[in-house]
Simulated assay, not measured.
Amino acid sequence: MNKMVKGRIYTLIGAIGWGLSGACGQYLMNDSAVSPIYLTALRMIIAGVFLTILAFFKQPEQFKTLISTPKEMFQILYFGIFGLMLCQLTYLIAIHDSNAGTATVLQYTCPILIVIYVSLKEKTAPTVMEFAAIFFALVGTFVIATHGNPFNLSLTPAGLFWGIISAFTYALYTLLPGKLIYRWGSLIVTGLGLLSGGILFYIGSASWQYTIQWKPYTFIAFIGIIGIGTIFAYTLYLEGVSLIGPVQGSLLASAEPISSVFFSIILLGEVFQGIDIVGIVLILIAVYLITMKEQLQEKHMRIKH
C-alpha cells in the first residue's frame, strides 16, 4: 500500500471515528444524564494523557524543548482552553439540544466563517467560488433550521444557537494553533492542549460534582467517544494528514458529518426528513467548494515554483 492510499484510509477512518463520537456523546447525555461539562473535561484529560505520551515517544527532543519553554506552553494552554475546550464543549451542548448529526453538520459551516474572517482581515472580497460556498452554507443552514418555513424552527432555538456557536469555536480551534503546529507538530500541540486545557477546565468547572446514571450501554458509549472517537480518531487522522497533506485531509474530514448522521440513524433511531438531507448536502457542497479552492491554489503554487 503506497503512502497516499494509506494516508487517505487513515484520514477517512479518523473522520468516521469523530462521527461515531457524536452519536456516543448524544447517548451519554440524553440516556445516561452525563453533563456536557463533565464529558468535555473527561474526554480531554483521558485523550490528552494518551496523545501526550505518544508525542513524547515519537518526538522526545521536541517534546522536552517545548515543555521547558514557558511562553510556548502558555500558548498551548491558551489553545487548549479557547480552541479545544470551547470547541468540544459547545459541540456537545449543541448535540444535547438537537442531535449528533444536525450539530455536526452545523459545526461544519466553520470553513465559511474562516473565509469571511480572512476576507475582512485582508480587506479582500471573496472569490466567486467562495461566494458560492457561502451561499450554499447559508441556504443549507436555513433549510436545516426551518425546513423552508422562516416562521417555524424545526430545531429548538437552543439547538440552532449552540450549533452556530460551535461553528465559531471550531473556527477558533482551526485558526489558533497554526504557528504552534508549524513549529512543534500537530501531535504534540494537540496532546498537550487537550491535557492542559482538560485539567484546567475540570478544576474550574468542578466537574467532580456531576453524576452519571449507569445503564447497559453507558460504558460502551464512553469507549466510543473517548477511545474510538477521540484517541483512535485523532491518532489516525493526524497520521493520515501527515501523509497526504492538509487540503486532502480537510476534504476527507467531510466524512465526519455524513458518518455522524448515519450513526445517529442506525444507533440512536434519529429520523431525518428529506428536507434535512437537502440541507446537509448543501453544507457539504459548501465545504467541498472551499476545499477545492484551496487545492487549486496549492497546485498553482507548485506550478509557479
Rank of each mutant, 00 (worst) to 15 (best):
R43N: 04
T90D: 06
N2V: 05
F57N: 13
F57C: 12
L42W: 04
I76H: 00
E61L: 11
K123P: 07
M4D: 13
F136M: 13
K6C: 07
K71R: 14
G48C: 00
W18Q: 05
I16F: 07
A132I: 10
G22T: 08
I46N: 02
M129E: 08
I37K: 01
A55M: 04
W18H: 08
P126D: 12
G48L: 00
T109M: 11
Q26E: 15
F135A: 13
Q75K: 13
F50L: 11
Q88C: 04
G7P: 10
I53N: 09
Y117F: 15
P126I: 12
A125S: 12
L138W: 02
Y38R: 01
F136D: 04
I95P: 01
F63S: 06
Y91K: 01
A103I: 06
A47D: 04
K71N: 09
A103E: 09
N99Y: 02
Q88R: 04
V5A: 14
L12A: 15
T69Y: 10
F74M: 13
T127Q: 12
M4E: 14
S32E: 01
L89Q: 00
G101P: 03
L106C: 07
F50C: 14
L120I: 13
L113S: 11
C110M: 15
D97Y: 14
H96W: 02
